[in-house]
């Protein structure tokens, strides 16, 4: 647990692209909020693995959002029901119903569609917000935090030594 936290802090304080971290958080949210064994999650997984998206933040985001999804399933069910029973969208759904790929995506399942819709709506706000927070953390918050007395106490703990160790390994690998 401490090692994971150290790793996360290391990544946060490193020079890793803020977009990489922000995409990790937002795509982890998509995977976490929607049913795991869905066709669209195959695409999400491919994107996370194939592109330079931070895996640590992706996994943390996925774990946290999976827990949230259990609580939010009734809301997703409501959203899906609303969309799937909307008369304006009926022709779209009927057209999709004839497409094998759409059937594989199980678009007509209320929780699947509801959760995907909510995740897509949240994707870009979460991405932009995460990017903003990471940038601000690195430029302002990180320096202020390092000056706090509590941080000096932390620097004397096992956690700090782990963090340092991780940083040295990173430096060694990069040199």
């Amino acid at each position: 647990m401490l090692a994971t936290l150290a790793k996360l802090l290391k990544v946060l304080n490193s020079e890793t692209s803020p977009w990489s971290l922000a995409w990790g958080i937002s795509l982890g949210m998509v995977l976490g909020l929607t049913p795991l064994f869905s066709l669209h999650n195959l695409l999400v997984l491919f994107a996370v693995l194939a592109l330079r998206i931070n895996l640590s933040f992706f996994l943390i985001s996925f774990t946290v959002c999976s827990g949230l999804a259990y609580l939010l399933d009734p809301a997703f069910n409501y959203a899906g029901e609303l969309l799937l029973t909307s008369p304006k969208l009926l022709t779209t759904w009927q057209a999709l119903y004839d497409l094998p790929l759409a059937r594989l995506a199980q678009f007509n399942h209320t929780i699947t569609l509801g959760s995907v819709a909510v995740a897509l709506v949240l994707l870009f706000p979460v991405l932009v917000m995460a990017h903003f927070i990471i940038i601000n953390y690195r430029t302002r918050i990180q320096i202020r935090i390092s000056r706090l007395p509590i941080v000096n106490i932390i620097k004397g703990t096992k956690f700090w030594s782990l963090y340092q160790k991780a940083s040295q390994v990173k430096k060694g690998l990069s040199s």
Partner: peptide, 14 residues
């Protein structure tokens, strides 16, 4: 009535 935690399949079969 399907459970809110399980959802349901909506039929669009023309």
């Amino acid at each position: 009535t399907p459970s809110r935690w399980q959802g349901r399949y909506v039929d669009f079969d023309t």
